[in-house]
Simulated assay, not measured.
Amino acid sequence: MPSLTNAGFDELFDGTTKSVFRLETLPVYNPVSEASSLKSYLAGDPCRG
């Protein structure tokens, strides 16, 4: 699979006409500051925001 060059990325980005989607993933998601919210989410509790 060929790699995407900076120029190739710029061309794809500049050619976008509808929307851009950004997905960031982490190998593990366990931030200490959000531990209680994450526990509630995993238990199926509704999101509080």
Rank of each mutant, 00 (worst) to 15 (best):
E34F: 09
T5Q: 03
D14G: 03
L23M: 11
R22C: 15
P27F: 02
L23F: 13
V28Y: 07
L42N: 05
S37R: 08
D14P: 02
A35G: 05
T17E: 10
N30F: 08
T5L: 03
L38Q: 14
L38M: 13
T16R: 10
M1Q: 15
Y41T: 11
P2M: 11
A43Q: 09
F9M: 06
F13A: 10
P2E: 08
S19E: 15
P27K: 04
E24A: 09
D10C: 10
Y29T: 04
T16M: 15
A7P: 02
D14V: 03
A35V: 07
N30D: 13
L12Y: 06
G8H: 05
N6W: 06
F9P: 00
L42S: 00
V20N: 05
P2N: 10
D10Y: 04
F9K: 06
V28A: 11
E34Y: 14
P2D: 07
S33H: 01
D45V: 00
D45F: 01
S40D: 14
S3H: 13
S33V: 02
E11V: 07
F21G: 09
L26A: 13
L12Q: 14
S19K: 14
P27D: 11
K18P: 03
F9G: 04
K39L: 02
E11F: 06
D45C: 02
P46G: 09
G15K: 11
R22A: 15
L26Q: 03
A35N: 02
L23Y: 10
K18F: 08
